[in-house]
């Protein structure tokens, strides 16, 4: 504990730990269910594989109120600009989980119609493989993301590449530095 002279009612911690604790324990996902993976994402949020115990059962429809975009399903050529627009509308800090093999790499659909990996359009933090990934796999991915938020790796990554990955130059300010 911090101050020895004051025996009770004080707890001290590092500010960045508190901030990270707050951020990881109430991540609000944005609804971006596209195809079959969306059903498994809904199953993860449902009663049996409860996401509410991680503070995440509130799927915000509006991207402005969401922290996490779980791209669940195959992204077609027509959908890619919509995906980017929704991602841009989210407020920092924001994270992206690419759920399923279709979002991660195009999956079994290696053809003209599907974007071969959603990281061509948005920067991805965690890739969850599976076709579709069962709820346990998705939760493992989400907990990996929580771990990354807890150790603060993400903010360091963003500082390193001001475009936030994906090689797209948006002319954005670099993220806040943390020590």
């Amino acid at each position: 504990m911090g101050l020895d002279q004051v025996p009770h009612n004080f707890v001290t911690a590092r500010l960045e730990d508190l901030v990270r604790w707050g951020r990881r324990n109430s991540v609000f996902p944005a609804t971006f269910g596209l195809a079959c993976c969306a059903l498994e994402m809904m199953a993860t949020g449902a009663a049996h594989y409860d996401l509410a115990r991680f503070g995440m059962e509130v799927f915000r429809a509006s991207p402005r109120q969401a922290d996490l975009m779980i791209v669940a399903g195959r992204v077609s050529q027509k959908m890619a600009p919509v995906l980017r627009q929704v991602y841009d509308q989210m407020v920092e800090p924001k994270w992206v989980i690419s759920m399923g093999v279709c979002a991660s790499s195009g999956g079994m659909f290696n053809n003209y119609a599907i974007v071969q990996g959603v990281d061509q359009v948005v920067p991805v933090d965690v890739y969850v493989p599976g076709c579709p990934p069962g709820p346990e796999t998705l939760m493992h991915g989400i907990l990996t993301l929580h771990e990354q938020i807890r150790t603060g790796e993400l903010l360091r990554r963003r500082e390193a590449s001001p475009t936030g990955g994906a090689g797209i130059d948006l002319g954005r300010e670099p993220a806040l530095t943390t020590s």
Partner: peptide
């Protein structure tokens, strides 16, 4: 604004 007609046999599947 897509060019081409994808399901024609002479239109490539565009595999990566």
């Amino acid at each position: 604004d897509w060019h081409g007609f994808p399901l024609r046999k002479d239109d490539a599947a565009a595999r990566v």
